[in-house]
Structures are given as C-alpha cells and as structure tokens.
Amino acid sequence: MLTYIARRILYSIPVLFVSTFLSFMFVSLAGDPRQNLLANPKLSHAHYKALFHTYHLDVSIPVRYWYWLQDVFEHKLGSSLLTSQPIWPDITRAMGHTLQVIGIAEIIAITLGVAVGIFSAVKQYSIFDYLFTTVSFLGYAMPTFWLALLLQILFTDIYLSYNVRIFYTSGLNSGVTSNTWSLDRLQHIALPVATLAIISFAVYSRYMRASMLDVISTDYIRTARAKGLPERLVIMRHVFRNALIPVVTVAALNIGGLLGGAIITETIFSLDGMGYYFIQKLGQLDVYAVMAYLAITSLFIIIFNLIADVVYGYLDPRIRYD
C-alpha cells in the first residue's frame, strides 16, 4: 500500500508539470500579456523593452514557463502582470471562503444523500423512493446557474414584497468587517450552500441508492438473512458499510473538483471565493493570476484523485495495489 501511494505521488508530479505547462502554453499563446503593457500610452519604447525584460516577456513561452515556475516556488505564485500585486494573499483569502461554503454544503449533502439513498433502497418502489428518485433526477438535469438564480429570485422577491431579510443574495458580509462564523455570514452563505448541497445531494443519493441495491442482491446478504439476522442489522452492518465504498470515491472526486471553487455559484452570489476570483481574472485576461488558479485547481484534483484511490483500496480489501 505504502509503495503504491509513493508511486502514485511520484507519478503525479510529472502529470502536474505537464498539465501546468500545457495550460501555460495555452493561456500565453492566446492571451498575450504584452498587449496590456502596450496598451498603456504613457510608456515609451525603451520602457517597454525594460518592462518586457524584467517580466521575461521577451523570451519564448517555454522559457517563460521556466521563469514562471521559479516565481511560483520562490515568490508564492508570483504576482499579477496587470496590477503587480502578489497573487498569494488573494488566493488564500478566496480559498478560506470557498472552504467554508464547500465544507458546509458537502457535509449536508453527504449526510442527507447517504440517508435518503439507504431509505430509498430499503423501501424500493415506495412513494418515498419515487419522490426522491425524481428529485435527484431533476437535480441531475438542472443547470447549477439556474437553480442558484431561482433561489436568488425567490429571496430577493420575498425581501422586496414583505421587507423581511431571511437570506442575503450576494456578498459575504453586510458591513466591512468580515466574521467567519456569525449569523450575518451564515445568512449570506446560506443560498450558495443550498445550491451546492442540492446539486451534490442529487449525485450522492443516486449513487447510494444504486450501490445499496447492488449489495442487497448479493449472496452474502441472503446468507445473513437466512441465518436469522434482524433486518436492521443486515442493512446497517452488512449492506450499508459495503455500499458506502463507491460513494466515498465519488465524494472525494467531487470535493476535489469543488475546492477549486464553485465557479458558477460563487459568481452568481458574488461570493469572494476561488471560482469568483478566477472569473474576475479571466475577464481581465490577467494571465498569471489565471495560471495560478489553474495550477492550484489541478493540484487539488490530482490530490483528491489519489485520496479516492487510496481510500477505495483501504475500504475494499479485494483491491490489491502492489
């Protein structure tokens, strides 16, 4: 197992470099950062030359990638070409907000999704099952941005018609001060959390139900029932624990993707997280900020892919890594 993890980590390193290199080529080829500097009428020709040289914009893109890598390691992701501001403080601040929202949403989604999945499978073809199968089917088909907008419209209209502020529809805090755990903050993040939780819930409950039904039809469950085990024990000890394995993998992959910021949800609720940061920087074509975001997000995805594989092997002893 340990050698497997070590090998996977070693294998992930070149993957990360290749993936950032490709992203870098791709972003630099299409959005030439020199355009921004050339657009500034105050700068003379000599100025351009000097600036290009300091920012290594006068060399080829692969060489620029090398300088960028040095910047990433020596200066914590370097600084933006547009504003000359360091990128790291912005990213860490956004990361904190994203973590809070994603964390709450995923805890809710996993708890509810697993519970509903179990009940749906145990009471297959009951009204409860049909209801939640429909809900999760709709959640699967629903565009995230539309769900977010529905919630936003609903609560904006409640506020405008009844003058009651239940949840805020944008931002993180009412005042300038930022409290991570306050009622005000929770009122602000409730709707983004609800959006993400509903979408993830649809996925988890569907997986949980399918995987429960798979396990229920196996021989060892029949054996457990035949030897007279109470149904509750059969479900909780024999079915549930085995059915959870694929769901854990899905959850790990899903969280890995979401940590890079729920781009759509954060944009709609103007929530200062990673996804919102990315959309802002992409709109301004701030090449190095976009690159920093892509590198961090790829890193998360690779790490959580690894976690998913390792956890899968740990939970299911039939899987042998060597």
Binding site: A30, G257, T297, N305
Partner: peptide, 20 residues
C-alpha cells in the same frame, strides 16, 4: 486521456472559450 481528465474542466473550458 488521463491528463484531460485531471484538468479542471469548467475552468479550462472557460479559459479556452474566453481566449479563442
């Protein structure tokens, strides 16, 4: 194929769509 699967899909698509 693996590489494409490890890329942050929506972000890359947005970048590609924004730039090209």
């Amino acid at each position: 194929t693996d590489l494409v699967l490890t890329l942050p899909a929506l972000a890359i698509l947005l970048t590609a769509a924004a730039l090209w």
